[in-house]
Simulated scan of single mutants.
Amino acid sequence: MLKESIKVLGIISSLLVIVGLVLMFSSVSFGTFLGDIWLANQVEGIADTSQYMIVLETHKNNFVIAGSILFAVGVITAILTYFIYLFYGIRETTISPDNKN
């Protein structure tokens, strides 16, 4: 049971790290996409350039922050999973049949 839980935690931490990295490094593409959607939803498609740039920067920063949080949680989960594996791996000892105690 413990080994299965450790495998699941390893998979979850790997996924969190990968998703976090994708969000961080693709933040420009995602932010530009959402900024273009915002611009298209404006009345007649006209908006002030400075306002558009603020919207772009905000969306990019949101993706960087979300990706950084996911990445950090994934790394911390991986480290804790590793230490749990070491701790329980050392403590799980079997008594050999030769030992009568």
Rank of each mutant, 00 (worst) to 15 (best):
S29K: 13
F83I: 11
I69N: 02
I65Q: 08
K100V: 14
V28A: 13
S96I: 05
W38N: 09
Q51R: 09
F83Q: 05
S14C: 13
G45I: 06
L2H: 01
Y88A: 08
V73S: 06
I18D: 00
I84D: 04
L9A: 15
M1P: 01
G31D: 06
Y85E: 08
S26P: 00
I65N: 11
D48A: 12
N41D: 09
L2M: 08
I95P: 00
S29A: 15
S13I: 04
V64H: 03
R91A: 12
F33V: 09
T58I: 08
Y85S: 08
Y88E: 10
T81F: 00
S96C: 05
S96T: 09
I46L: 14
S13R: 04
V17F: 11
I90F: 15
K3G: 01
F83H: 04
N99W: 07
Y88Q: 09
L16G: 07
T32G: 06
T81V: 02
I12F: 07
I69T: 05
S50K: 10
Y52I: 08
G74F: 05
F83R: 06
I65A: 10
Q42G: 09
S29D: 12
I11N: 03
Y52F: 14
S27M: 02
K60R: 15
G67V: 03
G31I: 06
Y85I: 00
G89V: 05
F87Y: 15
A78S: 15
F71M: 13
V28L: 11
G20S: 10
A47L: 08
F83Y: 07
T77I: 09
L2W: 01
L23V: 06
S68C: 00
A72G: 07
I79P: 01
A72W: 01
W38K: 10
Y85T: 02
E57G: 11
E92H: 07
T93H: 04
T81M: 06
G45H: 05
L21N: 05
L16Y: 03
A40Y: 08
F63D: 07
V19Y: 04
A66Y: 04
H59T: 12
V28Y: 09
Y52R: 12
K7Q: 11
F30T: 04
Y85G: 09
E57Y: 05
N62C: 05
G67Q: 07
G35E: 13
K60N: 13
I90E: 11
E4S: 03
I76R: 03
I18P: 00
I18C: 08
I69K: 01
L21D: 06
A47H: 07
M24L: 12
S50V: 08
S50M: 03
F71R: 04
N61W: 03
K60V: 15
Y82L: 13
I76Q: 02
I37L: 14
Q51W: 05
L2V: 02
W38F: 15
S68A: 15
F87H: 09
K3M: 03
T93R: 12
V19K: 01
I6A: 03
G35A: 15
V43L: 15
M24H: 04
E57N: 13
G74R: 02
L56H: 05
G67R: 07
G35K: 12
L70I: 00
M53T: 10
P97V: 14
S26N: 13
T94D: 02
V22I: 15
A72T: 10
S27H: 12
T77S: 14
D48S: 14
V22A: 15
M1S: 04
G89I: 05
S50E: 11
N62W: 04
A66W: 02
